[in-house]
Every structure is written in structure tokens, then in C-alpha cells.
Amino acid sequence: MPAAALADAAQVTLSGLATGGLYAVLMLGVILVFQVSKNINFAYGQTGMVGVFLSYFLYAVAGIPVVAALLAGLALALLVASLTDRLIIRNIPAREGFDLVVTLGELLLLTSLAQLAFGTNAQSYLKLLTNWTTVRGGVFINANDILCLLLGIAVTLGGHIVLTRTSLGTSLRASAADAAIAKSAGINVLGLRTAVWTVSGLLAWVAASLFAARLSVNAFYMTPIVINVFIAGMIGGLDRYWPPMIAAFTIALYQSWAIYLFGEAAGTPAVFILVILLLSLVPKRYLEERHEARA
């Protein structure tokens, strides 16, 4: 393979994996919330977005020091996430699909509020290492790409270690499988649920910050990203761990290559073709084990 083509292949692969790393960060929050509280939060991406937009406004417009601005943005994301659970999810009827509808409404609300508060223009965010690049063999290795990839791997491995090797992980798995058993074993299921939603806010903020550095920040930028994450979750199964986390990396890499080979217009159809193929070819037994039919 000619060197230029190899360099291009490496470039697309690196970028795809970096995006996949951030998808994995988001995915952990999605599967934790789904498994522990049995909900899907469509406003997940916007939770991160409002935190990032607030940070931007504070440091770029109000002149607040960057670290303080970032912490304020993080606090907002955590607040939005935990309030979504406590004020919205816990108060809606326990009918299937209600959480989807209500959090979709929250997505629209947060988007509108962000537009009102921060305007409609896209804003260039903090660099977060996107301006550090080294060239090896014609491949432009950007530090932010490496950061996102390593973060995705760390979160994936760390999530697995927490879930399988710690008391917290035992409590989470018990709460996810059967709240009554968890309660009878002394686990504070409600408290754990609030903690899970809050952690999901943290993960959303981290991913949203890094995406903002790679793209820009505006009221809508997280929406197509979160859609891809949910698709990866649907492929892997939101009630599992490794399959959706691997699907997060895979779908980003796959989409990058589809765009590179067939053009940008192929990006979205390629993903849906993949979903249809997998649903057709994967053994039914594998699918029937999974209970999140709604996903």
C-alpha cells in the first residue's frame, strides 16, 4: 500500500477511534442509567452541552478564570442530571415509553434555553490539546485524539473494574438486576440511583467538553453524537457491558471509514445498514436474552 494511502488510513482510523473513545465515555453513562434506573435519557447530550456552554460563557464573555468556569459548567451538568432523575423521571407514570417522551421534551427545552441564554452562533471552545500535533510517517497525530482514545479505554476498563471488583460495583449490579434484592441486602437503592444519574452527568460533561474542543460549542452539537451512542447501545445491548462499550468504538470507526470511502452522505445510512444487517444476522437467542426491547 503506498505510503500516502497508509497515512490516510491511519489518520482516519485514529480519528475514528478518538471519536469512539468519547462515545464510550457517553455509553457508560447511558448503560449505568438504563441498568440501575431502567430509563433512557434523551436529554443526555444536552446535559453535557449546557455545562460546556456555561463554561464557555463564563470564561470567554464574563472573564471568569478558566478553571472556575469549567467547574461551574461541571456543577451545572451534575445538577441537570440529578434533577432530571429526581424531578422528572421519579414523578412520571411508570409506563413504557414515558421516559423517552419526557426526556425528549427536556432535550428541546434545554436546547431552547441554551439558544436563548448563549445565542445561536457556534463558538470556538478551549483547545484541550487540539493544537498539539506531531507528524509520524505522514500521519498527523493530534494530542486531543490520543487523549480521547485513552480516556475511552480508561473509562471502559475502569467501569469494568468498578463493576466487577468493588463493593460499589456489586451494589450497582444488584440494584440493576433486582431492586428488592438490593434493598434486602442493605443497599440504598434510591441513593445509588441518584449517584448514577449524577455520574452520568459527569460523563456527559467530559465528553461534551472534548467534543466541543474538536468541533465547536452550540446548542445542537451533541444531538447527532448522542444518537450514534444510542445506536451503539442498541446494537450492543443496554443491559450488557462489554458489547455496547465495544460497539461505541466500533460504530465511530466504522462511520469514519464509511465517510472516507463513500463520502459524507454515506455516514448515516451506513450506520443504519449496519443495524439492519446485525439484527438480521445475529442469532435470535442472543437478542432474546436482552430485555430492553424499547431500545
Binding site: 482516519v12 480519528s15 445542537f220 465511530a252 452522505a265 455516514g267 448515516t268
Partner: peptide, 14 residues
């Protein structure tokens, strides 16, 4: 050709 709302522009840039 491009579609608005792309989450990663590196493939196009490449």
C-alpha cells in the same frame, strides 16, 4: 457533498 451536523470532520479533511 456534506450533510449538516457531522460529529467528526477528519475523514472529509483527509
Amino acid at each position: 457533498p456534506e450533510i449538516p451536523g457531522t460529529p467528526d470532520f477528519t475523514p472529509i479533511a483527509t
